[in-house]
Structures are given as C-alpha cells and as structure tokens.
C-alpha cells in the first residue's frame, strides 16, 4: 500500500497532493472502510478486506478515540428515513470496539435543522456510548437561524469565540475549529482572523514533537471547491503547524471517507452516520445519495483513531455500520 500512496503523489498534476486516480482509490474505500497508519508523515493504508495482513498489536496504543460525524438528526428523506437507528448502530459499533475509546469527537452536523429536540436526541443516544466525553465542533446545520448561539449554549462551555478550543490528552494536542460561520457568498468554509490568531498563539508554546490533531466540520483541504468542499483560509491555519512532525486533520461534511498526505499533514474525512453523499463531481449536486436499503449501512460509519506514544504515528481506521 506504500505503492498506492506514492502513486497518488506521482500523478499529482495540480500540486495538491492528490490526483484523479488517488481520488478513485480513496473512493473505492468508502464502502469497505480503510485502515490507515501514519508514520513520520507517511500514510499507510489497508483496505478493510486486507486487515488480516496487519498486526493489530502494533496499533494498541496509549490513546484511542472515535470520530463520528454528520448525524443529521431530524433528516427523514428517502436517503435514510431512520437516522436515529443508524446513530444508535454507530454507538453499538463503538461499544463493540476491542480497544474502548477514551472519548468521542463529533465533527459536526449533529442536527439537521438546528432544532432543540434534534440536539436532545443525539445527546441522549451518545449517552449510551462507553466513552462518556464527547468533544464537538459545529457543522453548518447546527448554526442555522441564530449564528450558532444555541450551539454555543449547549456545547460551548470552555470554548473561545464561536466555539473553538484545544485540549491535551496523553501528550496529543487536540484543536477543535469552527469553519461554518460568517460564510461569504461564493466562498468556502471560513475560519476567520480572530480564530486564526487564537490558533497561532495556541500552538506557539508546544514542542515540535507534539502530535497534533485538528478537527473541524468542513474539510481543511480543497476536496472539491465547486461543491464548497474546502476552507478558504485553511492554508494559514496549517501554516502554524509546519514545525510539527505529526499533524492529523479530521473532518466531516462530505459524508464519505477520503484522505491525502501533504508533507507532515495527513487529512482524513469521516463517513456520516446518517446518509452518504456522492463522490465529487459524480452527480449534479452534493445532495443526499439514495442507495439500496441493504447497502445503506455499508456507506455509513465511524472512525477509530489510535495513538502510540513514541511511535510518532496515529492510526486511523474507518469501519462501516454494516
């Protein structure tokens, strides 16, 4: 699979670290899940069907957490009329992991329409997870109508500005960013100068050996700007992380797994627990994708992340709800 990674870079004509073939390979993983290991900025990926080739002991680390994303509680269209059921299935999946995660990261679009009862339902379901702490960042569906006031009231304790924050767990520095507010016509996701200034200051004192995990809703790399799948000032944020040897960026928003490596940074997007969205450019719009009922849970899922101190590596594993 090293070959696959290097192939991706060889065919990169746009200088963005990914090409069409790399994209298609990433997409091929969407349905089956991918197992990824980052070592010294190099991502090694294994399709779930080849997991038997891999020594699971190597992944047993000191810190394990799970990323879930895009629950869209309240969505009830044909692409998934039971988003409550699939979120519960995600929690069951989490509770069945051989290494129990220490906490959950939810990368936004908790709700579909920012309704209080939608947030309530998600909170209630997540209480059933073995991991009790859940760290959130908002998606654009969580800040409708009130510029995120309700979101801040619910989830913004100990955060700055519109809800950004950082915390440390077992030597790993986590940074939760908000890129779904104050969006400008024609533009992409936005972090804004206030948040960028905070972030620059937040990482200034850290040693360059500190592993960094950045999480935000909209991808912090240009997945597909035509559909708004990118963040216009993400380059500045990533610029503050250049000195670090290990940076992992976890995003949601696009309802499919995709990943790329650029220098010291590994980017990864998670599946939704609610409904899949089409591959970039493969449909007239990024709207919900209807798949046969028996296929749905194969395109929804969770992301399990493991960190082993001293190994300079984070392992990212996607697994579907099927």
């Amino acid at each position: 699979m090293d070959r696959k990674t290097s192939k991706k870079i060889m065919h990169d004509h746009n200088g963005d670290g990914i090409d069409r073939r790399g994209f298609l390979e990433c997409m091929a993983w969407a349905g089956t899940g991918a197992f990824c290991v980052m070592q010294g900025g190099v991502l090694k990926s294994f399709s779930m069907s080849r997991l038997g080739d891999f020594d699971a002991k190597k992944m047993a680390g000191e810190l394990s957490f799970v990323q879930i994303s895009d629950s869209h509680m309240g969505f009830n269209k044909p692409a998934n009329p039971d988003v409550t059921g699939t979120l519960k299935a995600a929690v069951d999946k989490i509770n069945g992991l051989s290494t129990p995660p220490e906490f959950l990261l939810h990368t936004g679009d908790i709700s579909h329409l920012s309704k209080p009862e939608e947030f309530d339902t998600v909170d209630q379901i997540l209480k059933g997870a073995s991991a009790k702490d859940v760290f959130f960042v908002p998606g654009e569906h969580d800040v409708l109508n009130d510029d995120g006031k309700q979101y801040l009231d619910r989830y913004g304790k100990n955060t700055k500005g519109a809800g950004w924050y950082s915390f440390d767990q077992k030597g790993v520095h986590f940074i939760g960013l908000v890129n779904v507010l104050n969006l400008k016509a024609g533009g992409l996701g936005t972090l804004g100068s206030e948040q960028l200034a905070w972030m620059e200051d937040d990482v200034k004192h850290l040693k360059s050996s500190t592993p960094i995990v950045v999480f935000a809703h909209i991808p912090l790399w240009s997945v597909y700007p035509d559909w708004g799948w990118g963040t216009q000032d993400s380059a500045e944020a990533l610029g503050y992380l250049k000195k670090f040897g290990s940076v992992t960026v976890l995003n949601g928003h696009i309802h499919q797994t995709m990943q790329k490596v650029e220098g010291n940074v590994t980017f990864h997007t998670a599946m939704s627990t609610a409904f899949p969205q089409p591959a970039p450019g493969s449909a007239p719009s990024p709207g919900p994708m209807k798949v046969p009922d028996d296929q749905l849970r194969k395109v929804l899922g969770i992301t399990d992340v493991n960190y082993t101190r001293g190994k300079h590596a984070l392992a990212v594993v996607d697994s579907t709800l099927a």
Partner: peptide
C-alpha cells in the same frame, strides 16, 4: 424541503443573494 420564502422588491437595483448554508449557491 418544500418551504417557501417571499420578498417584495420595492426599490430598483441589483440584489445579489446566496445560500448562507451553502455559499457556493448564488
């Protein structure tokens, strides 16, 4: 889905607008 919004334009001019959730929509 299926919800509507109406606005009455009482002044001449060019009124640009967008979807604040999906700002690529203008």
């Amino acid at each position: 889905t299926d919800e509507k919004f109406s606005y009455t334009f009482t002044k001449a001019g060019t009124f640009a607008y967008f979807c604040s959730v999906h700002p690529k929509m203008t």
